[in-house]
Write a protein that binds this DNA or RNA. Sequence first.
RNA 1: GAGACUGUAGCUCAGUUGGUUUAGAGCAUUACCUUGACAGGGUAGGGGUCGGGGGUUCGAAUCCCUCCAGUCUCACCA
Length: 905
Amino acid sequence: MDQPSHYTAQQIEDKWYAHWLAKDYFSSKPDDREAFSIVIPPPNVTGMLHMGHMLNNTIQDILIRRARQQNKNACWVPGTDHASIATEAKVVKMLAEQGIKKEDIGREKFLEHAFEWKEKYGGIILTQLRKLGASCDWDRTRFTMEEKLSKAVYHVFVDLHKKGKIYRGVRMTNWDPEAQTALSNEEVVFKEENSQLYYIKYQIEGSDEAVTIATVRPETIIGDTAIAVHPDDERFKHLHGKSVIIPIVGRKIPIITDSYVDMEFGTGCLKITPAHDPNDFEIGQRHKLESINMLNADGTVAEIGGKLAGMDRFAARKEMSRDLEAGEFLIKKENYQNKVGRSERTNAIVEPRLTAQWFLDMKEFSATALKAVESGEVKFFPPHFFNMFNSWLTEDNVRDWCLSRQLWWGQQIPAYYYKSEVFVALSIEEALQQAQDHFGDKEIKLTDLKQDPDVLDTWFSSWLWPLSVFDGFESPEELKYYYPTNVLVTGWDIIFFWVSKMIMSGYEWSEDLLGKEHVEKHGKMPFKDVYFTGMVRDSKRRKMSKQLGNSPDALSLIEKYGADGVRFGMISSGSVGNDIIFDAPIDPITKKALNESALCNQGQKFCNKLWNALKLVQGWETSTELSPELREINIESAYWFENKLKQIVSETEDKFENYRLSDILMSMYNFIWGDFCSWYLEMIKPAYGQPIDPETKQEALDFFERLMTLLHPFMPFVTEEIWHKIKDRGEGEDCIVSRYPVAEEFDNANLKKIDQVKDLITAVRDARSSNAKSPKDKLVLQVLKSENTSQLFDNNSVSGLVSKMANLESIGLVESEPADMLSFISGADKYFVNIVKEINVEEELTKLRAEYKQNENLYNSTVKKLSNERFVANAPEQVIANEKKKQADALQRMEIIKKAIDDLS
RNA sequence: GAGACUGUAGCUCAGUUGGUUUAGAGCAUUACCUUGACAGGGUAGGGGUCGGGGGUUCGAAUCCCUCCAGUCUCACCA
């Protein structure tokens, strides 16, 4: 068969992906097999495939494909997240380009545009995942804002409200006075700017004394409700419990103590304005201080500001400054650099402002999540992430979850206002009923109710993901089969945002949905294992991002190296939990990452190697009329390779348990390239142009087939291609559904024996190479008889094997050392070849002496250890035995080398 | 500023409870040889004071302290 010598991934990959889809291999429906389920961490619907996705999804695909090959019912649910902020921003931008403002068209029209945008451009990433080979069940593709999932969201919101866990409260938000909207932290840009720091004197009530505070926003003294000092600050101890008078304003406020105050910073006194500073707000809560809001939504001073009322905040600042100066309250002004937050969109200076928000009480939830991981019901890989998890969810640190977002794209909060009351219900009709009952007024109409304009945080839909994608809130059928999912693969940066919250929701609702019996048997957790992937970084350890331009383009990489090559590159560059330094070179001129990678290239070369190995085996002609000696060598080789294969399979099984994927891939790479291609195939390879016996050829092809099955989860395309090239396949006989091997007993003694054989072959080649003998010259090998060598060469196949691989003319055991032959040591035995040594004695002596010295050092170190009484007394027996063996071996080698030195000199 | 994680050959990483590791692998690299499956093969080699410094121990890459650097999450400061 004529085959090109290069493997070309591109068409082959498309072909097989289409084939798998056509055969419906990715789809999963409950049956009587064991389920193996993974829910994808839903990427933003606006997202494009980047390196992080490739890493994450390759891992998931490996796990899913292996499970599928283990005849488990493998189900990988794909989908996207509606990503309120990111998507709304995109749509707003798109509309802005058309000269449309969202406020002008209103909520309904805006959402129409948003959905239109989503239909057109959203979810591109899912298509891109196919290029990578992701074997998701595409029929199950979900979207966090689709109707069913939204229903689940409303359901849990109402449920939590009934349980009394949801409350309305005020919270500091970043307020953009220009756009008159709250901003998320992501939408605020902090920059160093030049400001003025005002030092202001506050008179102590009933005393001549005064304290000085510093502020960059003097107008906010209108909202002051306390002065805080550090409890241990000696300078102010005598003032504890006293009060001060706010300058100009004239109001009396207390002096309180709080360890938040930094004694070293400024004057050591801090004015507390709970309504206009996040930290002050917290201090205010601790000390039950009043919050006085002194700013209107548009950034002008509120009524309470007296003569400043109605003035813009900056004008008010100047005015206040003048008044303070006039009243001799202003001690000094100094230039000051601080970080000022500006709105990403309007560039207006952001004001911290108290706004009403919906909250979820997290106390019980976080305790539940902690316990789930602590008890091992949910296992973290690597386990050390529990530290971080723990420090965040402990009572002192946990904060209630702010559920509302001042956006339109998302699930609108199902809370309806009538007069001063709010009614939470699944529908406005229900809310109406509640309102009518509450007020005892049947006249209240639907139009009298006003729904809360805010939407829910995106995480409030994705925290239900493992429950909702199986439609658990509608019927338990599928959920019963697939829940708990087996493993979650995600980045550790969203451990609190997402991982912890899914655990919480799982424990909160799984019993309601699945029944007591089911959760007692299978557990309430949403997933049993969590595999944390690292961040993908560049060579400077920076996170790869679009803005930095330090990320190669994912699709270009696939185009260049093939999906298999890229998968190889991704997996081999990192292990569980560790960040991945992706070695893409940077263009020195543009400073952008080039779409190149040495590791992906290695993966591509690996595909090529497989391809050519197949070409070799298939090129062999067969003949049944070959000498039995040849067949014997091949039997010996096959027996060894069979054992080696079993060993790898058993190691692999173990490593999969611990998600040591890069480890597995590397050992397969070495196994296939080294043991299979360089050793096994060379062992059985017939002389050029000669035929091979048909049994051996078949064995080789069978091995090949098993290797493809083993490697398939990692490199699905090339393995499928080769699988089909090995022989004609029937309907449904594809690598993707070939049975993954299970660990079996193997003959360890045989592996050790062949290791010796390989060492010997290497030693002969070395003797040849270092004495300028051509590989083509046949040599005579004499083996000094020992217990070990007699055993090793007790049958013809080993001699045959060594002869073939080391290109020997003959091989024989001798009782005593032959004269005029070159000697060498392999293992602890001595061998001779018919090479006449023609090197200079000096050189050889130096070499031998160095070798002697090395062994002597080793020997000395063991002597030192073994003569140390405390070592002998304390070290475990095994360690001492090893040390003794090391000593004995070193001694034996020293003797042999010594003799060689003596012979030479 | 707080917490967490990371720091082992030129690069990317192993090194599981401290002792068969005189610190390993893959890639890259050097020399010689070879090339009739292959971007290939063979043989030998170079390259690391395991981030720095202390400590515990008979024994530390591994445990403790401290410092340095990087990253992430949170807080960003009156």
